[in-house]
């Protein structure tokens, strides 16, 4: 039951994208996420689609598992799309496409709804490509490495990364424990599956309390184990894992940066060029 839950959605593989440095992938994903908001026209969205499909193809992750990530935000997608359709007013003088009572739908509304929809979908797809091709452990290391400059302002980077890493390693055992507690309570007649929302929520208290108490006990044992293994904070710690940049990172970074430089340029110059190459802004 609960045991099947795995954290993260890493899809094991050996592809070009899998082998890229996690730090570079993280930065490029952030670039992609920011860049997507500077895309204004459907033509450029077409380019982004081609880029994403190319990345997914190179990463050799099944398209199905990439698309699965959209399922989680489907409500949000529909909601934003509907709001955009009904609440975007057309430019002055534009006739509504359809109207009834006080509700009017304009072409502009449909367009902006479609764009928001695409942006959110691509945002989720882009980040899921990262999590599909990078192990949570690698991501933790990448975050630690990228946040290192924050040490100057006394941000506890190492502790932050350690917390992330401990969280990852304790999720499986906590899930197991939850499962065990649920079964123990069920065996004593607890009922989790009937009744209204409040009744069901209340039924979870007998699960949460033992879980919390157990969590504290685990934390103490872990602290003892860590102390016994000479843990004294980040002061002089070294790290076994070396992260090396390879030609793949160079190629990947070049492609992404080139693409989004184009996107940013188009965005910045839209005013002068919009007459000459109007098709790019359609």
């Amino acid at each position: 039951m609960l045991r099947d839950v795995t954290f993260g959605q890493y899809y094991p593989g050996n592809s070009f994208v899998h082998k890229m440095d996690a730090r570079i992938k993280l930065i490029l994903t952030l670039l992609f996420m920011v860049g997507i908001f500077f895309v204004k026209s459907f033509v450029v969205f077409g380019f982004v689609t081609v880029l994403l499909l190319a990345i997914i193809f190179v990463a050799r992750v099944p398209l199905k598992s990439v698309l699965k990530s959209i399922k989680g935000i489907i409500v949000l997608l529909l909601l934003t799309a509907i709001i955009n359709i009904f609440f975007t007013k057309g430019e002055d003088g534009e006739q509504p496409l359809w109207s009834w009572w006080k509700i009017e739908i304009y072409v502009a509304g449909l367009k902006s709804a479609a764009k928001i929809f695409l942006r959110l979908v691509y945002l989720v797809i882009g980040s899921s490509v990262l999590t599909l091709t990078t192990t949570p452990v690698d991501l933790t290391h990448a975050v630690e490495s990228l946040l290192k400059p924050l040490r100057i302002v006394k941000f506890p980077v190492h502790e932050f990364a350690l917390i992330m890493s401990l969280t990852l390693s304790f999720i499986p055992s906590l899930i197991e424990e939850t499962d065990r507690i649920i079964r123990a309570q069920k065996a004593r007649g607890a009922d989790f599956d009937t009744g209204g929302l409040i009744k069901r929520a209340k039924a979870f208290i007998p699960i949460l309390i033992p879980l919390l108490v157990g969590g504290f006990r685990r934390a103490e044992e872990l602290a003892n184990a860590m102390n016994s293994r000479c843990y004294e904070g980040a002061t002089k710690r070294t790290c076994m894992r070396v992260m090396k940049l390879s030609w793949r990172d160079l190629v990947g970074a070049f492609v992404m940066i080139a693409f989004f430089t184009g996107v940013f340029l188009l965005y910045g110059m839209s005013k002068q060029w919009s007459v000459d190459v109007a098709w790019l802004y359609y």
Binding site: V137, S165, L166, S169, S173, E221, L222, A225, M226, S228
Partner: peptide
């Protein structure tokens, strides 16, 4: 070197 009772509660990394 010290090893404790519950193996799950001594693992630092995944």
């Amino acid at each position: 070197g010290m090893v404790f009772q519950n193996p799950d509660n001594q693992m630092v990394a995944s």
